[in-house]
């Protein structure tokens, strides 16, 4: 984890800065500490909580919603329209993660159901595992999560993927492709172009 627990611009992950991922609201440097203490924290007193606490959207910037603590979150309209990030998260999850983690975050025999995992994992936990990987190889199981830290198809959309899985964990959206979604924000397209170059 040490290799990614800083925000110094390394060539391999420098493209992350294009989407503002390494800003102050993304406490990458604190990921290790958060992970260590997370299980000791009592559950928050909100009606709905997940690994990052209350997912209620509080602030929005260019169609990207954040909760009161600044973690990325979803915004579902009354008619079921999902925000762009949740939708983009669905498509990118399905292309990059589904093969192992199963459709709709439901897991497979290969890897755990992330729709459940996000009930426990905070945003920074999630970010750390995605970027640096995880292994649990024994005689009875071979779970290997690759480090995606230099995979632009994942890291350029990491907040979108998190937002989607958070929505699944909180049962805010069901299985399958969201029927209606907000349009792609122009800043998203620009950041995407810069990040995917």
């Amino acid at each position: 984890m040490a290799g990614i627990a800083t925000c110094v611009p390394m060539p391999a992950i420098s493209f992350l800065h294009h989407l503002g991922i390494c800003d102050l609201k993304s406490p990458l440097h604190a990921a290790a500490f958060v992970a260590a203490f997370l299980t000791l924290s009592p559950p928050l007193a909100h009606a709905l909580t997940d690994g990052s606490g209350d997912p209620a959207p509080v602030t929005s910037e260019d169609g990207k919603w954040a909760d009161k603590d600044g973690n990325p979150t979803f915004k579902i309209e009354k008619d079921g329209t999902v925000d762009w990030y949740t939708y983009a998260g669905f498509t990118r999850y399905s292309a990059e993660c589904l093969r192992c983690h199963g459709p709709d975050g439901l897991g497979s025999t290969y890897a755990p159901p992330l729709a459940d995992s996000m009930k426990r994992l905070s945003y920074s936990d999630f970010y750390a595992v995605v970027a640096s990987g995880k292994q649990a190889v024994s005689s009875s199981q071979e779970l290997v999560m690759p480090a995606e830290g230099n995979n632009r198809n994942v890291m350029c959309y990491i907040d979108a993927i998190y937002t989607y899985l958070r929505a699944r964990a909180d049962d805010a959206i069901g299985r399958g492709r969201p029927d209606k979604h907000a349009p792609k924000p122009e800043p998203f397209s620009k950041a995407e172009d810069a990040c995917m170059e």
Binding site: S94, A95, E96, N153
Partner: peptide, 22 residues
């Protein structure tokens, strides 16, 4: 199936898929 292709970037050793299927 439903099949939605989208832009994808190549990195050696990383998935190079570029589509979502149901």
């Amino acid at each position: 199936m439903d099949y939605e292709p989208f832009r994808v970037s190549y990195t050696a050793g990383q998935p190079y898929v570029g589509a979502t299927l149901s």
